[in-house]
Design a binder for these strands. Structure first.
Lengths: 149, 149
DNA sequence: ATGATTGTCTGCACGACTTGCGAAGACGGC
DNA sequence: GCCGTCTTCGCAAGTCGTGCAGACAATCAT
């Protein structure tokens, strides 16, 4: 996603208002690599601005998604996660702790579906399921660290 | 997934009982390529056996998933879909009508995540988002055909 | 046959996540 | 500073899935 300053500009140019809530969320999302859920973001936001509404977090994330500034991820059946990284990338998902990481996948864009006649591909998504480094370290016990859920 | 007859055998060998409800669901899932949701399956089941409970459908699908006879799919944020196809395959998702199709993807298994040090990959999933043949035919109007949702 | 045991089905209630809605409040141009 | 418009907030409601308990059925020992 754009920098908070650039987002503010983008918002203003669309006739939207700049509110402390939005500014805060822009900041929290910027270069956030944890793929937070709305709830995780809400908790972080609440720390900085007690009283902010979960509704507002959903609202703002929805706007950002609509503007194409963030992407939505739905790997497991749980809550939607938000990804500010707009570069061409894919994801690794730890089935132990639920953490999601960004990865590059060489050759991903040249993959083609075989057996779907007439299907026009817009976008390719690759998801690797497995175990992350931290969880592999702590094999037996509980997950290395709980993901934001 | 196995044939209904083989599933009945598998159930019996685990000390589970063979009930009309289970037999029905086995039959509805067998070689079903529509990736139905629990609700879609429930509706189909209700037609054949009025009074069957949605709870039972969820229950049975859960058992099948646990036994590894079907796979769960979560491409969009919506309801979980169930896939009886256990072969190595991937999916195309029509962003217009929501339909999901099975496809082969050459080279998918040799994909590697770059930039996730120490991540042990168990499974790779490739999802193509785009527009299916039917929806491309009926470009302007409503989706070619509503997916089971 | 009787009664105990075990497993299944069903309906309901609840939990997680998300969105719709209306009232109250804040932003930004004038 | 004022006012119109856009936002925020809280609550209600909707969707999807699961936990639970009671009714029921099949199995087994006595």
């Amino acid at each position: 996603m754009k920098s908070p300053a650039a987002l503010i500009e983008a918002y203003r140019s669309e006739g939207r208002k700049i509110t402390p809530q939005r500014t805060l969320i822009f900041g929290l999302m910027h270069e956030n690599t944890t793929h937070p859920t709305a709830d995780a973001l809400y908790e972080a936001a609440s720390r900085a601005m007690p009283g902010i509404s979960l509704r507002t977090v959903y609202q703002t994330l929805g706007e950002l998604a609509e503007m194409g500034e963030i992407r939505l991820i739905n790997c497991d059946g749980g809550a939607t996660r938000f990804d500010p990284n707009l570069e061409d990338h894919h994801h690794v998902v730890c089935s132990r702790c639920g953490a999601i990481g960004d990865v590059e996948v060489r050759g991903a864009s040249s993959l083609r579906p075989v057996g779907a006649r007439g299907f026009a591909v817009d976008e390719v998504g690759v998801v690797f399921h497995g175990t992350c480094a931290s969880c592999r370290g702590a094999r037996k016990g509980s997950p290395a660290q709980q993901a934001n859920r």
